[in-house]
Simulated scan of single mutants.
Amino acid sequence: MPLLNVVDVEATCWTGQPPPGAVSEIIEIGLTVVDLATRERLDKHRILVRPARSTVSAFCTELTGLTQAEVDTGVDFADACRLLAAEHRADSRPWASWGDYDRKQFERQCRATGTRYPFSGNHTNAKLAFTDSHGLRRRPGMAGALAVAGLPREGRHHSGADDAWNIAALVLGLAARGDWPEPA
């Protein structure tokens, strides 16, 4: 069965520069498992991640809906990465995200914390695939892409779990058009 993990992360953020000593850290990992053969979204997952070197700002709560108290109930980043590999086969399954931010954030945070990178090297930038498929000159954000594709936005924008679910719908639309790249 050709399964694909669609991943979207939310990270600590601020209106300007981070406070002294703080860095942007993943606080939510949204993951939707997609069956490319049957063109179905199979499972929607959410992993809350407890930040170690930053806190959730009021701006971040307004954007994502996540509070410091909520992410304090999450797992640490290394455990989140182990969960991705153990429960979602992230280390062997192809995966996709909207743009390269999610992949690069994982790379940065893994490097900074000495954590094993949880994903396979088989990543597809869904934003690029969508832009090419639709012949667009500009790369749209996820919400704009849903409008172009005539798909509804489900859930809360900037919720990792809901955004991964919506990106998965875009991926399935690309697969239906024959424009989703075959996994390597």
Rank of each mutant, 00 (worst) to 15 (best):
H45G: 00
E154P: 00
T15Y: 02
L42S: 08
R137A: 11
V6N: 05
K104N: 14
A147I: 13
F77R: 05
Q105T: 13
P94F: 09
D76V: 08
S133W: 11
F119Y: 11
A149M: 10
R177W: 01
S57W: 00
C13L: 05
K104V: 05
D100A: 13
R156C: 04
T15E: 15
S57Y: 03
R53N: 12
I27Y: 02
L48T: 03
V148W: 12
D43N: 04
E28F: 01
C60N: 04
S57C: 01
L170T: 04
W165M: 04
S54K: 09
L136C: 05
R46Q: 14
L146R: 12
W180M: 09
L3V: 08
H134E: 14
V75H: 00
A184P: 15
P118D: 07
L4N: 09
A90Y: 10
E40L: 14
A168N: 06
T113G: 10
I26V: 15
P181C: 06
Y117K: 09
K127M: 15
V56T: 03
L151S: 11
A147E: 15
A96P: 09
T73F: 01
N122M: 14
I26L: 13
D179S: 15
V23C: 10
T124Y: 01
T115P: 10
Y117E: 07
L174M: 13
T67Y: 01
E87A: 14
T67P: 02
E28K: 02
A169H: 07
V7E: 06
G141P: 13
M142V: 15
T124M: 08
